[in-house]
Design a protein around this nucleic acid. Structure first.
Length: 262
DNA sequence: TAGGCCATCTGGTCCT
DNA sequence: AGGACCAGATGGCCTA
């Protein structure tokens, strides 16, 4: 079976078939076939049409070498038939796809663990990838700020409705809505009340409040100022500019599903 | 129906 | 030669 024309979900056994799929998929396959004919690649084993002897064009005709005309052959490679070359390319592509899929799953697993470590509102929908990363960054920043100002061995961090207290006697997470602690405990298991996987970080000066568009200007991002993510659920770290330590109680302007972080 | 989010494929680049 | 990583493209699903 030619994998190249399989839908990704089919390849992975994840395809949830429905009525609409058939027609769109047929169109997609037609597109792919067309694309294969028009494009070439160095590594893909799927550009069969272009590579057939009928269409073969000497590479130097299209892309004449700019610097080195003749390259020394450093390796004695065995001659391969076109069929063997195609098979080799296809196998490499399949392997590369598998690796990439596995890599993305690994990344997603890591992201999921991060998501679980963050305090969230149980009634909320799952944080998206970008939200998770942004929120984690803000959360870590908040922790680092708070740790720098810890008095009496007690640390309190407010993240929206959620208040996290770290004391010598243990950690506690509470919520003004009352259900968050339960949810956090469910997620993290009975031995935890809150997860703090990150070591205290070096303290740095809090930047002034500024708006940050997490999509349009990512170049501004690190070295890690807090980054409000402008989504329907918005996480903000809100503080007076002269005050570097978080206030001891919430600044709650809680409207339109917006969180204020500290 | 448009837009957001996501999984996957793909080709390029760098490294071992 | 092959693996890791990355970014762009593509198409499916879901929701407002």
């Amino acid at each position: 079976m030619d994998r190249s024309i399989l839908h990704p979900k089919e390849v992975c056994g994840l395809h949830r078939g429905n009525g609409r799929y058939g027609e769109r998929e047929r169109n997609r396959k037609r597109k792919i076939q067309k694309h294969k004919f028009l494009s070439s690649s160095s590594d893909s084993g799927f550009d069969v049409s272009f590579e057939s002897p009928k269409h073969e064009i000497p590479p130097d005709t299209l892309f004449p070498p700019s610097k080195e005309v003749k390259r020394k052959k450093t390796r004695n490679t065995r001659c391969k038939s076109p069929t063997q070359v195609l098979r080799l390319k296809r196998n490499r592509r399949i392997k590369a796809n598998d690796r990439e899929r596995h890599r993305m799953h690994t990344l997603n697993d890591a992201l999921e663990r991060l998501r679980m470590a963050l305090p969230t509102f149980p009634e909320d929908t799952k944080l998206t990838k970008i939200e998770t990363l942004r929120f984690a960054h803000n959360y870590i920043w908040a922790l680092s700020q708070t740790l720098g100002n810890a008095d009496n061995g007690e640390i309190t961090v407010n993240v929206g409705n959620v208040t996290v207290s770290i004391t010598e006697n243990g950690n506690m997470i509470t919520s003004s809505t009352g259900s968050c602690a339960v949810a956090a405990q469910k997620r993290l298991g009975p031995q935890h009340t809150a997860g703090f996987p990150y070591p205290p970080q070096e303290r740095f000066v809090a930047p002034e409040w500024q708006e940050y568009d997490c999509y349009s200007d990512q170049s501004v991002s690190p070295p890690m100022q807090y980054q409000p993510c402008y989504d329907q659920r918005m996480y903000q770290i809100h503080r007076p500019q002269h005050q570097l330590t978080p206030p001891s109680h919430h600044h709650m302007s809680h409207h339109n599903n917006m969180y204020q972080c500290l």
